[in-house]
């Protein structure tokens, strides 16, 4: 269970307050006007933003005080998720280890995820050669290889055309189910995803209201 208790985040001249819980294995849609504090919440969960007060815990253990790399969290941002100058294979491998060489069984995991995401053909290409949708597939693949139970998506598909976006959203749902993830998705087009999520968090001027799925 992800538990966000009375978390207060200081912004330039106002505060965000969050107070909700999410059962493990569920998918949460976060919606609200831009600038309302949606990304701020994800940054706080991932450890990129310090919080003023409150508690964030996962399965009963506090995440506060942990570095981003130590948290059970992988996150995709709006852009720059893949290292464009590296190949697809290299990008995926970084999800397992930053060392030069992977062990055979690690290599097998890379191959498997590439197959699952249908990017096997691209493995040796540089990411600059890929389309936006393919790049986000690589990013998603790497996030999965990191084997962290919480997946945070900060509108990673907002720049894609509608068809690709829908495909990617469906793919995320599939992965969410297959890997038993707990997923938080920020979206500007909440209507596209409302059908697949378990709950929706509506953020408005720093106040968050949790609504169960319709």
């Amino acid at each position: 269970m992800l538990s966000v208790d009375n978390v207060v985040i200081e912004r330039d001249n106002w505060q965000c307050r969050f107070n909700f819980q999410l059962t493990a294995g569920q998918m949460l849609l976060i919606s609200g006007a831009s600038g309302a504090g949606k990304s701020t919440l994800l940054d706080a969960l991932a450890g990129f933003t310090a919080i003023r007060g409150g508690e964030i815990s996962w399965q009963g253990q506090s995440l506060l005080g942990l570095e981003p790399a130590q948290r059970p969290v992988s996150m995709l941002f709006q852009q720059n998720n893949v290292f464009e100058h590296l190949s697809v294979a290299q990008n995926l491998a970084l999800g397992i280890s930053g060392s030069r060489k992977l062990r055979p069984e690690q290599q097998a995991r890379v191959t498997a995820i590439a197959e699952r995401l249908q990017i096997t053909d691209q493995l040796n290409k540089r990411c600059t050669m890929l389309s936006g949708g393919q790049q986000q597939r690589v990013a998603l693949g790497r996030a999965l290889l990191m084997q962290r139970p919480l997946l945070l998506l900060d509108e990673p598909f907002s720049a894609l055309d509608k068809t690709t976006r829908l495909t990617m959203q469906a793919l995320v749902k599939e992965m969410h189910d297959e890997f038993g993830l707990t997923t938080l998705v920020v979206s500007h087009q909440p209507e596209e995803m409302q059908a697949m999520v378990d709950a929706e968090l509506y953020v408005d001027k720093g106040e968050a209201n949790l609504r169960q799925a319709p």
Partner: peptide
């Protein structure tokens, strides 16, 4: 942020990025 989340060391950051 990606490098931080991946937990890359100083050496690895230089190597890859």
């Amino acid at each position: 942020r990606q490098m931080t989340m991946l937990g890359l060391s100083q050496w690895q950051r230089w190597r890859w990025i």
